[in-house]
């Protein structure tokens, strides 16, 4: 199995991202429909991009949550207050858990930063600038998936509303 004129990774990424003109798109698609070698590489591009498209980000938007619920994803909410330490057991009958980091004064358009740290080492596990939030509920939604069992089990979520304000801290001890 070989290809005389293989398409480059760059071209395939541009194709997948719909960043080629009509002639370029046609040319790539004609090549892919006739070539197993380049189709295999394109499938790697597709699989990677699709993993990104379908991922649940660590901090999830309220409307995204509502959409997942509508699609039948079994979501368990775990409300936590600022300063609270929470023991959390991931339930067997849930697809996704959402830690509802509440008790925040959130005006629409507020600047919110979320930092996730390992409780044991203090290492930053993730940081989200301009994090989405639910202003009405005064909460930030932290998504937690079963796959995360292999990450640090105990973490501190720090939510800062506005640059100069102190961060609200939520400690979550996961039990898988």
């Amino acid at each position: 199995m070989s290809c005389a004129k293989p398409l480059s990774w760059e071209t395939l990424v541009d194709w997948w991202a719909a960043d080629l003109d009509e002639a370029g798109t046609s040319s790539v698609e004609e090549h892919l429909l006739g070539c197993d070698v380049c189709s295999a590489v394109a499938r790697r591009v597709a699989a990677t991009a699709e993993a990104l498209r379908s991922m649940v980000p660590p901090v999830v938007r309220p409307e995204q949550l509502a959409e997942m619920f509508r699609r039948g994803v079994r979501i368990l909410e775990n409300p936590i207050a600022p300063g609270q330490t929470c023991d959390f057991h991931f339930p067997k009958n849930a697809d996704l858990a959402v830690h509802v980091l509440g008790g925040l004064a959130l005006a629409p358009g507020a600047s919110v930063e979320v930092t996730l740290r390992s409780l044991a080492s203090g290492t930053v596990l993730g940081h989200v600038e301009d994090a989405p939030f639910d202003a009405q509920r005064g909460a930030v939604y932290l998504a937690c998936q079963r796959d995360y069992a292999q990450l640090d089990h105990d973490l501190v979520a720090e939510v800062r509303v506005g640059k100069d304000r102190p961060a609200a801290r939520y400690t979550i001890l996961h039990h898988w």
């Binding site: 699989a47 699709e50 990104l52 991922m55 993730g126 998936q145 995360y148 990450l151």
Partner: peptide, 27 residues
């Protein structure tokens, strides 16, 4: 299938290994 199941924790960790700008461009 073009898709393959990707472990969410591995994806998160791999995204974290990229620079901020690269991660934002992908997201």
């Amino acid at each position: 299938a073009p898709r393959d199941p990707v472990n969410a924790a591995v994806l998160l960790r791999c995204l974290g290994s990229l620079g901020d700008r690269a991660r934002r461009v992908l997201e």
